[in-house]
Amino acid sequence: MTKGPLSRNKLIDRVFKITALVATVVGLVFLSVLIIDILIDGLGRVSWSFLTSFPSRRPERAGILSAIVGTLWVMGLTALFSFPLGVCAGIYLEEYAKKGVLTKLVEINIANLAGVPSIIYGLLGLGIFVRTLALERSVISGALTLTLLILPIIITTTRESLKAIPFSIREASYALGATLWQTILRQVLPVAMPGILTGTILALSRAIGETAPLIAIGALTYIAFLPESVFDPFTVLPIQTFNWVSRPQKGFATNAAAAIIVLLLLTLIMNSIAIYLRHRFQRRIKW
C-alpha cells in the first residue's frame, strides 16, 4: 500500500471539512452583519418620542405609536382566537379522530396549509373577512387572517405535545372511571400545556412579523390615530417599516431601521419566553 491515495484522501477530507464549516458559519456571519447594520442605522433614532409619536411627513418627527398599538391589538386578538381554536382542533385530531383515510387527509391538508404562502392567506382574508363578511380593513379582519395563518402551526404543536404524554397517565385515569374528556382536561392537557404554550408563542412571534397578508387585506400604511374598537382601521409595525423603507428620503430609512429594532426586540422577547417555558418544562417533568 502506497501512502499516496491515503494522504490525498485525508487532504480532500480536510478541505471539505473546512468548506462545510465555512458554509455553516456563513448564515451566522450574515445574521451578525444584518443586526450590526440595523443597529448602526437605527439605534440613534430609537427614543421615547419615537415610540410615542404618530407617523409624520417629516421623518425626524415621525414615530411608531399607532404601529405599536396596532400590533398589540392585532396580536392580542390573534392569540385570543388562535390558541383555543388550535388547541381544540389538535385535541380532536390527536385524541378523538379515528385513524383512517379521512384523518390522514386532514393531516396532509394541515401540512399543506402550513406551506401556503402567507400572501395567499391575505387574499383569503380579503375575500372572506373584508368583503363577504364586510368587516372592512379592520383590526378584526387582520386578526382573523393571521389566526388562519398560524392555526396549522398551533394544531401541529398541540398534537406533538399530546403525543409526548405517556399512555400510562391516560390508562391510570381511565381505570378510575374517568371519561375521555375528563382524562384529557384534567390529566393530559395540564402536562402538555407548557409544550403547547411554547409552540403557540413561537407561532405568534411569526405572526407579529407578518406583513404581506395584512397589506393584502388592506391595512393602512399611514395612520395617525389609534384604533378604538376591533372594527377600526389599523397599521402594524412591519407595515410601518415597509412604508418607510419604500420612501426615497434617507430619514425614513433611519426610521425603518429604528422600527425594525423595536420589532426584533418584540420577537426576541417572545422567543425568550418560549425558550424559557420549554426549558422549565424539560426540567420539571421526569417520568
Partner: peptide
C-alpha cells in the same frame, strides 16, 4: 366508565399523576 369505576386497576409500572 361505570364498569371501570366498580372494577379498579393497578398497573405494571407505577403511574401516579404528576
Amino acid at each position: 366508565i361505570e364498569i371501570r369505576r366498580r372494577i379498579g386497576m393497578v398497573f405494571q409500572k407505577p403511574n401516579p399523576f404528576p
